[in-house]
Amino acid sequence: MKQVGTERVKRGMAEMQKGGVIMDVINAEQAKIAEAAGAVAVMALERVPSDIRKAGGVARMADPRIVEEVLNAVTIPVMAKARIGHIVEARVLESMGVDYIDESEVLTPADEEFHLLKSDYTVPFVCGCRDLGEAARRIGEGASMLRTKGEPGTGNIVEAVRHIRKVNSQVRRVVSMSTDELMTEAKILGAPFELLLEIKKLGRLPVVNFAAGGVATPADAALMMELGADGVFVGSGIFKSDNPEKFARAIVEATTHYQDYKLIAAISKELGTPMKGIDIATLNASERMQERGW
């Protein structure tokens, strides 16, 4: 019996992306640059996060014309973002044949209480997380891939570092706990008990976990890999830099060879200026996208 949309098929798709870089793009031209640089997938958006910050107002799913343009431009997988809890945006993207949906805090949430029941869909989902509780709740809802949230559109890696360290240290803690301690840990984390049992058994999260939110340089991407990310999302970092082609290539190489420091030095030369960064402390609580999601 042939079955589509199974957990194995959806999680497996993310496994194929491991060690790779997923790049935000806003049109066919950028998508082709990303593909040529060696991106494993592109995220089709109307605006990159730093421009969403500047524009303010409500950020929604991209115009389907942009998504379609990107779908037709490249042969690598295409992802797109839907608002948290926006069932119809997600269904629309699924119907268009998008390969992965990001239920994303970068957009303005449509629901401040409930996330999507992602296990209901044939298309797989990626979701953001800042700690193991959030990660486990998203997996419980059916997310097939995770990414740490970081603080999108800032070009500042500090929040991404905080989140990947937090998630990984909490995973290590669960793995080292004895089984009779896990129910209380589940209660403390707000995580499904069964998932903690699975994490303990596997010794890791049951899905791929990328890093996102603030990657601006090849060294940032390599740092995320060093800290145990399975791969990297780069949003504003590439197309807000001086030389997107070079930047994109350099970030891909730094991700693959994240412990080859001589190589990272070589590819970081003469890259031009990375995107201008923002100090997180200057952001008001209402400007922090990472607080969205529950």
Partner: peptide
Amino acid sequence: GRQVDSFEV
């Protein structure tokens, strides 16, 4: 096909 057509058998 695309990912939505991916399957196991």
